[in-house]
Amino acid sequence: MTAQTGYGLITTPQTVAEAVAAMAGGAVPIAGATWLLRAPLRHEPMPDRLMSLRCLTEVQALDIGPERAVIGAMVTHDALAGALAGQPDLAGLATAAGASANPGIRRIATLGGNLGAAGFAASDLVPALLAADVTAVLATGSGLQSLPMAAFLAGRGGGGLILRVEIARSARRAAHARLPMRKAGDYPCAIVSVSADVSGGTIRDIRIAVGAVESTARRWSSLEDRLTGTALDPARAEAAAREMSDDFTARDAVDAPGWYRLSVLPVLLRRAFTQIKV
C-alpha cells in the first residue's frame, strides 16, 4: 500500500478551453474516478492535481440518433447500456456497457475513464468501440481532433482531452462475447466484439475486435479479411479463428494463462456470430 501524503487538488474547469489548459499544466482529468481511486492498490501514487469534468456540457452528451450516435466521455456504463437497448448495430456496445464489472461500478465508471485507462487490459468498452468503428473526438491545444479508435489507442496518453465518441449508424448487426471466470463480476479473460454488415446470409463487411488477450485491444484484421464475403456461419468462423489464433501473443497473467485466452477466442467468436445470426 502506497502511503498517500500531501494534499491534492481537484479543479473544476468551466470550459473545455480551461480544461485543456489545465491538462497542459499537468492536471489529470477524472471522470468516474474508479481507476484513479484504486491507485493505492496498484502501488501507484495518486496524482496531486486532478480535474473534474462535471461542469463541461461537451462531455455529457448521450444522443443516439438515427444517423449518428454521440456518447460523451462522462456517460456511465449504466446510462449507456440503457440508452442503447434495442439498437442492433450497437448491440455489442450495449452488452459491453451492461455486463462489465458489476452494477455499482457501472453506475460510476465512464466511457472516458475506460478510454483513458491505458493500463486496463480487460476493458469491455474498448473492443466494443473498436468494432463499432467509432471516432474519438478530443480537445487539444490546437482545437478539436477526431481520431479513429485504433489511432486513438495507439497514441493513448497523447495529451488530448477525450470529449466524446461518434458513431455513424448503419444497418449492421453487432455482438459482444466476453468470458469472465465466474458467471459475471470479474474482468473477462478474453473478449470478442463483432460488427457485421450481412445481407442474404453473406458477410459484406465485418469488424472484429479482440480485448483482454493482449495488453491493448485491437482489431483482428486478417480474420476480418478471411471472413468477408463468406456465409455468416458460427462454426466456420470458429474454425477460421482457430487456424489464425497465432495472430495474437496472449498475456500470461494471474487470472488466466495465455494459451487459455487463445483457446477460448474462437469460441467467443462463434458465440458472437450466433448472437448476430439470431
Binding site: P103, I105, I108
Partner: peptide, 20 residues
C-alpha cells in the same frame, strides 16, 4: 455501498472532491 443522488454505488471509489 451508499446512495449518492439515489443511486447505489461503492463509496470507496468516490473521491469526496467529486461530490460537490
Amino acid at each position: 455501498t451508499v446512495h449518492i443522488d439515489g443511486q447505489a454505488v461503492p463509496s470507496c471509489l468516490r473521491p469526496i472532491g467529486l461530490l460537490q
